[in-house]
Design a protein around this nucleic acid. Sequence first.
RNA 1: GGCGCGGUAGCUCAGCUGGUCAGAGCGUAUGAUUCAUAAUCAUAAGGUCGGGAGUUCAAGCCUCCCCCGCGCUACCA
Length: 715
Amino acid sequence: MKKRYLVTAALPYANGPLHIGHLAGAYLPADIYVRYLRLMGKNVVFVCGSDEHGAAITVRARKEGVTPREIVDKYHTSIRDTFEKIGIAFDIYHRTSEPLHHQTSQDFFRKLLENGQFEEKESDQYYDEVAGQFLADRYIIGTCPVCANPDAYGDQCEKCGSTLSPTQLINPRSTLSGAAPVMRPTTHWYLKLNEHEAWLREWINTGKADGRQLHNPATWKNHVVGQCNSWLDQGLQPRAMTRDLDWGVDVPHEIPHSEGKKLYVWLDAPIGYISATKQWALDHHTNWEPYWKDKDTSLIHFIGKDNIVFHCLIFPAILKAHGDFILPVNVPANQFLNLEGNKLSTSRNWAVWVHEYVAELPGREDDLRYNMIKNMPEQRDSEFTWKGFQESTNTELVGNLAGFVHRVLVLMHKNYSGVVPGIDASREFRSGWDAEQVGTYDSELHRLHLKLEEMGREVEQFNFREALRILMEISSAGNALLQFNEPWKAIKDDPELVKVVLNLALQYVAALSVALRPFLPFAAQRLRQMLNLPLLNDDSALLDIHNELAEGNPVIRPNHALNAAEHLFTRIPDEVIASQVAKLQAAAQANQPAAEKTAPATYPPMKEEIQYDDFAKLDIRTGTILEASKVEKADKLLKLTVDLGFEKRTIVSGIALHFQPEEIVGKQVLVLANLAPRTMRGIESQGMILMAEDAEGRLSFVSPETSWPNGWGVK
RNA sequence: GGCGCGGUAGCUCAGCUGGUCAGAGCGUAUGAUUCAUAAUCAUAAGGUCGGGAGUUCAAGCCUCCCCCGCGCUACCA
């Protein structure tokens, strides 16, 4: 067992609020894990913070007519408060705009440079000649090559979610000036990731690095290892660690060619974990370094699956390249959470926003946490539905758990005025775990202990759904214990039985008041209050219970006075669910027409003026498609044979997503006939078919109005 | 097209290196019960473990082919 733990949760990007997908993906599992470790008396630091740099934030700022600073301040505050309200208990929630972070990142850059980890390379990037600056991917918009959305960004299309590069965009234009950008050379520092490939492969697959066993790869999730190997097998390439950005951490100024260059996200965001730890250490007058550099520290990154490669390959490479840092022992990435059958989408407003949830359903933080843990996407994508949320709350939390707690407390007050009775330990009764079995107080306490241990093992293996299920089993067994022994009847003629049974049931409740804290921290405190036990802080309360149970001691001693019974959870009425569903749909619909309305307004800008001679260079001919077939191994390409009258041409055209080969045979088309041949997928294309494209990205052939002879010119 | 991860009872999901692995929770049905928020407890339902072929004494779990979902990636003049 390691001496200390450092747990990180992915830094939220400060250009929008938090939704339930973020929660289920990274923050909730991290929070459960950390709270559990604390209850077990472990030394653990849990860090997170806002990722506040990058072009998306400046784009948003310009759109809203404010400064980037105002954007990140707004969302940093909102996200931080939302985490607090939903009970995510970071030791520190830092931010990457802090000077401490800038220094930390720059120091990393200097160290990597010093270690010879970079190569300076020139590449061509889009440049806006009107605005006079290089364009971040996010500053370039154009038509998405996948879904034909005319307003896709250079890094991603928000309509279809495709990851893009600016050169893939059709008709790219600058968001700064509207001008068509031009390619221009620029210099950047590239991390020689290729040199790290070999050890990364070994480390990922065997857990060994530099001959030392650092982790057991069998404990890593399949999809994490799989995704890494997929990358490794394709060969790691040097990756640019700097960009031409205007909002971020400067490349240290003393370094030549650093003007205008910022550290790219790889050398910015993950280092935020380190600067957060530094700030935490400053605040607590302690040293941050053991948490990042001591072999006896377990470093664990909680992230969503979109972050696997960053955290399992690139960041470890950076840490190793630096030289002094430890590597993560696990990166338990979750998959994605869907909402009511569709992917969560910030831009389409298909989401449950956490800040709205906590405002609209106050006091129901744990209801949400419970349902999200129950459906946590641990191994595969999973689904949140309002109906399911209502069901899990009403049946499992209210019916099973709160019902159990309430009936125990009520029976305690009815029979013993709320004072825990002493018991006859030799008295036998029917076990709540099995109606056929006879149990004693000691044997049943022992069984409780085993269950708690079982739960703990699951948490340690990041199986949070299973861990929570085991706790609910304790509640069910408690209910069964009451059911089988019927204390409400036995009180008349067998009072000793009632004492044992109720005392035992109360031990279950008391154990749950601690064990539930990682999952349902608010309910756990309510329960403590009801039991008249001290509220939990982050001491080793669960470890203490383990120790007591191991000795055969109860969790609550006789003569302890309980507080009044209350409802731990309340039912969610149908109206609440109906209004949430309606709200979700209204938001989605409001968003739909808006997209259509704005679309026609964004015609591609006019290209620069040309002379007749330029036009005259184009040799456009009429032709007829004779044959058409799909190109092997290409989704978008059709191989066409076109009759130009005087000859037949083979033309490869990227229209396969729009037309079936059969339906276009015989079609009359216009062909740009003197375009230089180009080979695609091994086929030489001898020309280009002219197509019209609309705002939706639909394509139409451009043809003569009526049947027309092949091979004649167009002017 | 390539690669990765998935496709298990109505729903949401567990099933590690092949041999009590055919499971859990919810929903449903029937019965029991009334201390408890129309809560609880018991029992049941017969799911060809995406489809097909193969390896093996034995396969959700291994191999091959195919289909579907998600992610990454290639092609788009």
